[in-house]
Design a protein around this nucleic acid. Sequence first.
DNA 1: CTAGGGTTATAC
DNA 2: GTATAACCCTAG
Length: 430
Amino acid sequence: MLDPRITSWILEFVLRQPAEDWMANELLFALPLPSPLSPRLKKILLLRRLSSDLSRPSLSARTLLSLELIEELERYAGAGAPSNSLAAAYAAVAVECTTRFLRERSDDDHGEDFFDAVNRIWNCRVADLERSEAAGLFSPALREARREMEEAIVNPVVRVGLTGRDTKKAALDAVRVYLEEAEKEMGPPYLEHLAKAVCEEWMSSGTGRDGSVVELYEMLRNLLASQGERGRYEGLPDGNTAKSSGLLGFGAGKGPNNDDDAIARPNLMNQDPSDLEHVEENRERASLSFVDKGTKDGNPGTTTCVGDKRDCAGAPKPSLMDWNPTARTFEWDEDSIESPSENSPDPSNKLHLPSAKRREISLPLEDNKTFVKRRRKKKWSSLEEETLRKAVERHGVGNWKFIKSCHPEIFKDRTEVDLKDKWRNMIRCI
DNA sequence: CTAGGGTTATAC
DNA sequence: GTATAACCCTAG
């Protein structure tokens, strides 16, 4: 059986070739992989996903997610702020994911899809991004784009301007620039690096070689032992591991669960190193990764936006690439999504006693009126007040439902009527 | 869904 | 008791 580390090298090599997506998927499915995946391999998978989006070419929320995950990977690996090209690609893709609904408008669509997209992407996703640890992606360009999208909501002239702009080309170009930069920064695939080293060794060793496989095997082993690749090829073996496990691990071999990564980079991915099932499960889903399932915009629904019913609150999530190569739960994970069934004083959960008709014998109270328990009074926090103030400034008075959907976490204990009442109280004071 | 009137809880 | 904030009800 192949050592999972070797399969990582093979996978890296294949993923970075212009091989067909199906082949990459097949390989991903067939090869035993280490758990957790090395950060390098995770990044390669994400870059490949971007590359796949470019080649179709189809930019969607999946592209946006890939960029977010890359940022997260780099952040957990200790990198500084995201590169300009990454942030630029993110902004350009976010714009394209919104304006495409203007271009693709059908006759019976009066712009609702575009408004939905602005809410979903800019009011939920980008707003969450700004508040999160991933705020490095929140570039001035993204801020400006958000301003423009918000203006487009109320100003048809701006919408027409956006429709005429080739945001798709701009986004494709920006992603291409980022990909080239990332590829360059990553250096050649490890297998290529190794092959080059073997070649050099062969050339320099001169005479006395018989060219046998055994000899090549020995040479590789020595190279691995002496080179001790670190840093750039993180997650790949150093000299010691190569020695202890025999050449490339073919011998006694380290088990797939030997987790140097988890020790060396405890912040990264924090997945249970003993749980190989995750790898299997992830891989199964990842096998779908390069196949377009044709969802409306491929939105994986990773934001905490609850109010947006289309992709935030319980809408069926496309399996397309919803595999999270970082295998972590984080700000946008579903766990953080408000669950109306628990703890949340959803107005629909008001304690309505059974109807008067059923209760008239046992409980002839309230003159047969339906008895509704009043919610416990809860004072508004300054955060709630400030958020409401800014939201009204931005979206205007009367859009209570929309405002609540923009800040599902902050207003999780409030109904849209509460927002309206609170605003009435606030302006009374002025 | 929102606006506006009504009711209730709480602080003073 | 009064003022006010928070919450409820319901017509349109």
